[in-house]
Design a protein around this nucleic acid. Structure first.
Length: 290
DNA sequence: TACCAGGGGATTT
DNA sequence: AAATCCCATGGT
């Protein structure tokens, strides 16, 4: 199926933006996305290699995209996943001019979008993320999904390999997992954290659906009841799992940006409801610029 | 407020 | 090939 996209959209930048860890580049311009129990291949058509930067106000990467998703699954799952109801080109234009550094990060990262992902998947993934590099997180999540997830059966485009197609593990499957199995997934000292989180969800002590109805502060506090979830991980779950676009996770890269590029002043507060989106541009800029 | 925790992946030697 | 560094941190 063909999707016509009129806003910022870069599969490559999204894939490398450190918010999703189950996205892989395939052959022939295809990118494979796995989220919860779904997998989907997508590529840009009519693609002359896009330049790195962008003009403000002009959509970056707009055009026709081919997806293996059917119309219903696109509309119900992937369209909201890609946050398609938000106009990122307009946000870049509105936010321009408040910080030279953030302006440059927006120019560099044009095409990024903050994905709406599953809260459970985000909780586990960002518990795992602590003190790991992005490639290490990706391989741990892949191992966990292969060991505890279910095979996903979809048709792959020509040249794309049918490997590693597993759903994200359910809370039940992780709650009943053994330490030995979890350790094989390179979770290290995080094994106990993941099992506790799974148990809390299975027992109902932590109701992730109920949390969706809470105010930011309450949501933020509730998440930190989970062992292994501090401020940074809680902020990631709020931003990526609950669509709280004003939340700003501060990791070593964002802290470095504040310290070394912004004279020690936090630039994010001035963006209000878009602060978390600016954070994502800055994270991408810090990790991908040469 | 220090210090430590698994280990993987990237970089340097 | 081996040493070294660094990592979307949190608990103690």
């Amino acid at each position: 199926m063909i999707v016509d996209i009129h806003d910022d959209f870069s599969l490559k930048k999204i894939a490398k933006s450190g918010q999703c860890f189950r996205v892989t580049e395939q052959g022939g311009g295809w990118w494979r996305f796995i989220a919860t129990d779904k997998a989907m291949f997508m590529r840009k058509l009519d693609d002359a290699e896009s330049p790195d930067g962008a003009e403000f106000g002009a959509p970056f990467g707009a055009g026709e995209y081919e997806t293996t998703a059917d119309a219903d699954t696109w509309a119900q799952f992937w369209k909201p996943y890609f946050d398609m109801d938000r106009n990122y080109a307009a946000i870049r234009a509105e936010c321009f001019g408040k910080s030279g550094f953030v302006d440059e990060a927006m120019r560099f990262g044009a095409g990024l979008r903050v994905l709406n992902q599953d809260a459970w998947e985000m909780l586990v993934t960002f518990i795992i993320s602590q003190r790991k590099s992005i490639p290490a997180i990706s391989s741990a999540v892949a191992a966990l999904s292969e060991m505890f997830g279910e095979p996903i059966h979809i048709d792959c485009p020509e040249g794309c390999k049918r490997v590693g197609l597993y759903s994200f593990p359910t809370p039940e499957s992780l709650a009943s997992a053994s330490d030995e199995q979890l350790k094989k997934c390179s979770l290290g000292y995080r094994v106990g954290y993941v099992r506790d989180a799974a148990r809390m969800v299975v027992s109902g002590e932590l109701d992730l659906d109920e949390l969706a109805g809470m105010q930011d502060d309450d949501l933020f506090c509730e998440l930190q009841r989970v062992h292994g979830v501090g401020k940074k991980v809680a902020n990631c779950v709020c931003l990526f799992g609950y669509g709280r676009s004003q939340m700003v996770p501060v990791d070593v890269w964002i802290q470095r940006a504040i310290d070394e590029d912004c004279n020690g002043c936090d630039p994010f507060a001035q963006y209000g409801a878009d602060a978390g989106i600016m954070q994502q541009y800055v994270f991408y800029y810090m990790t991908q610029r040469k």
